[in-house]
């Protein structure tokens, strides 16, 4: 028994923040800020009660999804979303390849690297909804704006991840190809590309999956697809149709995720 007591005195887990004042100070600041932040929202209790009532109506409607009333719109919306997704992914794949080679420090000279990295960084810093709003303004409502938005967003995603893969390739294999008298392009084709291609295919399929999911979101800001149909249904308080659309989206996303992950698992 004395052993047990001694063991407790001999060692206790050191805290993450060693300074006791700093540790409690940070906790206090977080709690105080949270308190005032919530206060600033001017929460309107009667409004919430009315809202709960509306929420209940919506819930009831969702239990009776209506696929039929606006069937043609739903089908067209889904097809639009699929078309947007496919073109956007293709666009992203094609444009991200050269950018990612430029953005890999082990392949590109510093100026090229900096330019490509900056492009990727800017593209990635804009959220897909913000991009969608911009492109809707630039090219008008509809699926074309959506395709451009998703394509742009895909470039950032694929470009950055592929560039990182390229930077992690085996340097010795590159040296070996260079030592045979191979040119820069041959080093890329023979030593770099084989090392990254399967992961790039995997990433592209994953991106296809993400693009479909996002196509439903950007529809809400006017970029076409099934999201636009959902927005219309919600605007008309047609919750039965909205429920049907949500179910369709969930089904397609789950199916897409299943297919994409089972393909990716087979890539070695």
């Amino acid at each position: 028994m004395s052993d047990h007591v001694n063991a407790e005195q001999l060692w206790s887990k050191p805290p993450v923040i060693e300074n006791r004042w700093l540790r409690w100070g940070i906790t206090l600041v977080v709690l105080v800020y949270a308190f005032f932040a919530i206060r600033s929202f001017e929460i309107d209790i009667p409004r919430i009660i009315i809202g709960l009532d509306r929420g209940y109506d919506m819930l009831l409607a969702f239990l009776r999804p209506d696929f039929v009333a606006r069937q043609t719109h739903i089908v067209r919306g889904v097809l639009e979303s699929v078309a947007m997704t496919a073109t956007a992914t293709l666009l992203g794949v094609i444009l991200s390849i050269p950018l990612s080679f430029g953005a890999a420090r082990n392949l590109s000279p510093l100026p090229v690297y900096l330019v490509c990295r900056s492009i990727l960084m800017i593209v990635r810093s804009l959220h897909v909804v913000v991009l969608a709003i911009l492109f809707v303004v630039m090219v008008g409502f509809g699926p074309f704006a959506g395709a451009v938005t998703l394509g742009f967003n895909s470039i950032g995603f694929l470009g950055k991840l592929l560039a990182e893969d390229i930077e992690n390739t085996n340097e010795e294999s590159m040296e070996a190809v260079r030592a045979t008298g191979g040119s820069w392009l041959q080093v890329v084709i023979y030593a770099v590309w084989p090392q990254v291609v399967t992961r790039f295919i995997g990433l592209s399929i994953y991106r296809l999956d993400i693009n479909f999911r996002q196509s439903t979101v950007i529809g809400l800001v006017g970029a076409g697809g099934i999201g636009a149909v959902l927005d219309t249904a919600m605007g008309r308080y047609d919750y039965n149709t909205a429920a049907a659309i949500l179910i369709v989206i969930i089904a397609i996303v789950l199916a897409g995720e299943y297919v994409s992950s089972s393909i990716r698992r087979r890539l070695t």
Binding site: S173, E175, A176, T180, P194, Q195
Partner: peptide, 24 residues
Amino acid sequence: MIFQEYALVDRLSVMENVLSGRLG
């Protein structure tokens, strides 16, 4: 050149690795 860690391209076949000697 022959390397310490072989420096083959793992995902290429044996033949492709040997033929890469002709890239020059």
